[in-house]
Amino acid sequence: MNVVAAVAEWFAQPEHWQGSAGIPARLAEHVYYSGLALALSALLAVPLGLLTGHTGRGGFLAISLANFARALPTIGVLTLVVLGLGLGVVPVLVALVALAVPPILVNTYEGVRGVDPRLKDAAQGMGMRGGEVLWRVEVPLAMPLILLGLRTAAIQVVATATIAAYVGIGGLGRFIVDGQRQQLIEQILGGAVLVVALALAVTALFALLRRLVVARGLRVPPAGAAR
């Protein structure tokens, strides 16, 4: 209980809420890196997943690419890009994009692949062309899995963006890394609590998004994830 009190006290101190090293500023940095990385990853991975899933070609390549990216140690990628290009936002983004692409790509691909072929036949029978089948049948049906992939990626990115602090960049990881250097357990815990809170907020955001973009008839557990 001692520790809990110390963390509560850490949060209660007004100076932790002010200035460029305060909680709001660090949180904003964290959200900025994570959001940008997630947006970039989605721009890369969603079209690739839709294309490979729709055409059925290149699926093996896409999955292999995702597996390769999954195997990359994030901290190694971060360090290597820092050594090559110097400190900045770019290394953090590269490392986080490598982390976020696999879940988005795999889930988008599986979501589109998993659409019942009979539904696609029916859509074609109704006169839809390839693009129409994709946008009006496959994408809506794959939406639960696409969102799941995006959410998994978002949570991983939010949790991992903390290592940006290791190469001297901001974000909530600063509290954790600096807390370790100064032997302030309550500051490490405070930083961790903030990251978990952000991840929970992301989860809530995706629940809301799901309500908005997933067709009402599909709001049962998605077929692909139910297994």
Partner: peptide, 18 residues
């Protein structure tokens, strides 16, 4: 388990260290 998954690894390592 999903909440645990969101805890940054760096923080867990540091917190276990003592």
């Amino acid at each position: 388990v999903n909440t645990l998954y969101a805890v940054p690894s760096l923080a867990l390592f540091f917190l276990l260290l003592p």
